[in-house]
Design a protein around this nucleic acid. Structure first.
Lengths: 246, 246
DNA sequence: AGGCGCTTGTGAAGGCGTGCACAAATCGCG
DNA sequence: CGCGATTTGTGCACGCCTTCACAAGCGCCT
């Protein structure tokens, strides 16, 4: 059998066919749509047009329609999209209805903040285990979780069905942690350490480097400064609202 | 992506060369090259081939050569790139030699960690001011800086020549803070709040949403799970190693 | 019932980014 | 001094993504 259906499917019966083959660019935007939809639902909206949702998500409406069309036809012409239906669809596609268990390794400065970040819990994830190599950290409680030694990582990952690991260690420790995570069966890693991780095929790695974001902004500052310092410095119009990623 | 065109500077032969017109994708990778180059310099390498640097940065060597070729010809055929020369070039292009002053607004869970993150200081930035709306936070010291009330933001930004603002407030406060920053003259904003910011033309906004990164990973987990559950579950998928912001 | 306005879904075109493959250039060695 | 080994810089083709523009579909009003 394919896989478990998640409640409401419009009209057509039968099992869900092959997993939809979505463009990466679309996948990266779905979370943003989802966030906007939750806001709309909280505000009491029942349906929303592509124009309205696009504005709430900060994208072009044509792009939004094309993105959603990849999921199937969940809109009604002349009316718009059903907010709750679309929320359920996107959450199903993203696998958020499973509330995946996440392990976080490295409770230093940044890791400590991540462990306490309620945005994870409220948006489909459960941080269920914290690890650190520093014995001074082991045993401490953060947000109701006890920090364990990284040596226990492997057993904990297996026992608690963890599939996603977050690395917030110093860069020199990151590769070792990644190896441990992979050996324990983790197949997705979010890496905050500023270094390249080497992982076997089949494991997904996403990297977030906070300094890189600032450096990209710095480039644009530099560019803007060099333009205004010159004769005819132009202030062109371009409503840019940009997100990392892409 | 911020679609921005800008006239190239006239060919003045002065100390400041014409500002190169770099593709966004290239700009986003320069910081990663820079990090790899610093590692190499620390390890004592004098020159590095495109193949070697590409491996250290986790990208294709052809892509790296094309990226660097946009900066000019700073390599030597048959030899490679001079490490320190390339570091200087990239740092100049990114404007890191100016060590821009950064203001951080919102010293909650995440903001506190960002204020203490030494990765900013070590990679070209100075966090010079912390703000919060919560009077319980005002007056506290974080990493040697006193948290000030957000009402003082405007004067501080002007007085201290701040051009980049980091927003790590709750989402409902983010737009107000962004407005204050822009009014004070800030032209680049790094937004950690999960919401869309509206800013005038000429202001660059980059958004980092930590939950979004996990949700993207969750999608791939979901996809992988649904594939292995199906007959002939394939496990191809070349090892992706990629970073946010592609 | 029929027409009208509104909104979705999509074909097509254009732009951007990637990666291959190779010519051009440089060094070292005999 | 010349030749071969090595590596950069780039022309080109291909594929992905974005955007426009419009036909198709839906609901409402008369």
């Amino acid at each position: 059998m394919s896989q478990q259906r998640h409640g409401n499917t419009p009209g057509n019966a039968g099992a869900v066919p092959a997993f939809p083959d979505l463009p990466e660019a679309t996948i990266a935007r779905l979370p943003e749509y989802l966030r906007a939809l939750h806001n709309l639902a909280e505000a009491g909206s029942d349906t929303i047009s592509s124009e309205g949702l696009a504005a709430a998500a900060g994208v072009n409406s044509a792009k939004l329609r094309k993105d959603l069309s990849h999921l199937g036809s969940y809109g009604t012409r002349g009316v718009g999209y059903d907010v709750t239906l679309l929320i359920d669809q996107i959450e199903y596609i993203l696998g958020l209805d499973q509330r995946r268990a996440v392990a976080l390794v490295g409770v230093g400065n940044l890791g400590h903040a991540l462990a306490g970040y309620d945005g994870f819990a409220s948006r489909g994830f459960r941080i269920v285990a914290l690890f650190d190599a520093d014995l001074d950290q082991v045993g401490k409680a953060i947000n109701g979780l006890i920090v364990r030694h990284v040596g226990e990582l492997r057993r904990a990952v297996v026992d608690e069905g963890i599939t996603i690991g977050v690395i917030s260690t110093p860069p020199n420790a990151a590769q070792g942690v990644a190896d441990d995570l992979v050996a324990a069966g983790v197949t997705s890693i979010l890496n905050f350490a500023p270094c390249v991780l080497s992982v076997p095929a089949g494991v997904d790695v996403r990297k977030v480097d906070l300094a890189v974001e600032l450096q990209i902004l710095s480039f644009h500052e530099h560019r803007k400064a060099s333009l205004t310092a010159l004769p005819g410095g132009r202030v062109d119009q371009s409503g840019n609202q940009e997100a990392v990623g892409s």
